[in-house]
Nucleic acid binder design. Structure first.
Lengths: 222, 222
DNA sequence: AGACTTCGGGAACACCGTTCGCAAACTCCG
DNA sequence: CGGAGTTTGCGAACGGTGTTCCCGAAGTCT
């Protein structure tokens, strides 16, 4: 009889009457974060999170209507850690700063980019970030749809950077091995040249991100 | 004893000796595509795909080393359908055209954006697209890393558009219900204004995508 | 024709999300 | 103070998942 089509943020956390709950929603969120940080997203199972709390697996369903709710809680919890520096009046710089704040959080939680990319959700903490972004865009012409679009793309682009940084570490031999094979075959000379170019470059891709983000935002707001 | 760290594209499809295989890798890929198109990504299980082929579930492991391989095959199969129009010499326009081709394919396979975003992989068909993109970028200064970055971001941005179009249909009440609550609470006046603005706008977001894509690419290449 | 190798797939294992049902624990009211 | 009412904790179970094992069948090669 619960309100299943309402987001978790609108469902009351505890009942006023009856046996009081031992744990709280933030406690469960923290346990899920701990499991994810330790073993990755795929280890965030109901039973694992419950074990982290020292409870039985079925108890979680008293706090959360399913695994999806748990993931929403996790994402929004990380949004609280995004640093929102004071605005300077320069929209692009201010948005880029938010993006860097998101990136920093995503580095701390390597499972986060995947979640941000595939299940856009807005909880109370994410709303605060959105509000900040809207303030940065206050002087910008364009209706609400444009601004919402800027917010969504900022999220997605930053998550893509974070994900690729991770992929560069974890999926190295797979992609590079095949690209190397393609290059060696000579059928795609442009890709052969690309790999040569990559081998020759020395600097890391990390310091390219801020500039690229600024350019994307500049274009998007132009 | 198989070469597990090699990508599937480098593993031989069939053995030269022994009992010949009844099915082929493309046949299995087609079956997986059919299942995904019909029921979504989460219905692409080994047993479901096998059932689509009329075989036993364990047989698939003769063609594919696991579910991940299957997903890689699916993504690369769709890359073959991306239209690659002849180049005009205008980098931004040419890249935007590729992006629109990707978008068209993603509309045909609603499970594709999620896969593209979360597991970047390069198969033979994706390599052709990459080659085309490199050709479009031939006149552009910048080393290989920049061009690879452009390719990755083009993929991600287009997938984000495709995903959001889908989210706008499927996850409507959830997000809007909560945003409406936030707006009504009056604690975030900027979000209240945003929702008013959204309610007032009439045109669909669909015709905004090409222009936004062009602007992003322009900024990225500047 | 026999040795060899691969293929097909039933059975089983460990895990998953989720539901059910019930004892325990608490609040509220008479 | 005691019962009625309500919610919590959670063991057990259901159906589904990816994956591995194993073995008979079906080919190829010598």
């Amino acid at each position: 009889m619960a309100d299943y089509d309402e987001p978790i943020w609108l469902r009351p956390e505890r009942a006023a009457t009856g046996r009081p709950a031992v744990r709280s929603r933030p406690e469960i969120t923290a346990a899920a974060l701990a499991v994810a940080d330790r073993g990755g997203l795929e280890t965030v199972s109901m039973r694992n999170v419950a074990a982290e709390l020292g409870t039985g697996g079925a108890s979680l369903y008293r706090y959360v209507s399913g695994r999806d709710d748990l993931l929403d809680l996790m994402v929004d919890a990380t949004a609280a850690d995004i640093e929102l520096p004071p605005l300077t009046g320069e929209s692009v710089a201010d948005l880029a700063a938010v993006g860097e704040g998101m990136y920093a959080v995503m580095l701390r939680h390597r499972w986060l980019p995947e979640l941000v990319l595939t299940r856009p959700s807005l909880g109370p903490n994410a709303v605060k970030v959105l509000d900040h972004v809207l303030e940065a865009l206050a002087g910008h012409p364009g209706d609400g749809r444009v601004k919402l679009e800027v917010f969504a793309l900022l999220n997605a682009v930053v998550a893509t950077f974070a994900l690729n940084e991770r992929a560069g570490i974890e999926r190295p031999r797979q992609a590079v091995a095949y690209l190397g094979h393609v290059a060696a075959s000579g059928e795609h000379p442009r890709i052969t040249a690309l790999l040569d170019d990559l081998a020759a470059s020395t600097t890391t891709a990390d310091d390219r991100r801020p500039a690229a983000l600024t350019r994307i935002l500049t274009g998007l707001l132009s």
